[in-house]
Write a protein that binds this DNA or RNA. Structure first.
Lengths: 117, 117
DNA sequence: ACAATATATATCAAGTACCATATATTTTCG
DNA sequence: CGAAAATATATGGTACTTGATATATATTGT
């Protein structure tokens, strides 16, 4: 799989998309309503940014009933994974990324249990 | 030193700036005319993109006579260095990055000798 | 002080990106 | 089939980005 670096970094160049990617990296798989809640953002906004990430090849999606689960695209080249990992580690402690994770874990009635160490 | 990830990735989201950063990473330090030659681009275009990188905190500059040498900002946080290194390694073999390096080494009358293994 | 060279900045037009709101689509359940 | 829930897309407005061209600034040597 090949990723155009211009498309990659333009996709990374928006805070909303960064926050989604960092959460996906930390949580593995999330549906739109979880991201919407974690970021406290309007649903169409999240949906459109996820579409952007999907078109850039960064995430893949999987439907399960009403829900659509997003995850990092498993076919990403290693250097892109390194970029995403370094970024997630670099920003994890700073706002708004730290509170996103907290908000997600506080979400009531999460549609799926995602128990993985 | 702190780098805002949105500013970082927007700076990386342009092919011209990527090419400059990859060359700077490979060569250590380059003046504007070298970058202009390597990318075969107009001088004001290179100058403006370098200004963008400087304002984003990614590069620093040093004047020596008529020339201004640019280099990666030595104060970059480690995660940003990792991002830049992974990117440079990931794209080095692909166009236009590969030919940029070749064009630079073919440049006649390069203003400085930069001998470092 | 003047000319030449390297680099920087200004301007304008064209394209692009983002947000908020409204609306459409898809799936499940009764 | 109709309603409800989750997600996706469309629209319009505003703001940012980019490139090309022209011009300005800074430094050196004569």
């Amino acid at each position: 799989m090949d990723i155009d670096p211009e498309i990659l970094f333009r996709a990374l160049g928006d805070t909303t998309r960064q926050r989604c990617l960092v959460l996906l990296q930390q949580e593995g798989e999330l549906c739109v309503c979880e991201l919407t809640h974690a970021l406290d953002a309007a649903q169409p906004k999240i949906s459109r940014h996820l579409a952007h990430l999907r078109e850039a090849g960064l995430v893949s999606d999987r439907r399960e009933g009403l829900w659509i689960h997003y995850r990092l695209n498993p076919a990403l080249p290693e250097w892109v994974r390194t970029v995403l990992r370094a970024t997630a580690e670099g920003v994890a402690g700073h706002p708004p990324f730290a509170s996103d994770k907290a908000a997600l874990s506080r979400m009531p009635d999460r549609p799926f249990s995602r128990d993985w160490a």
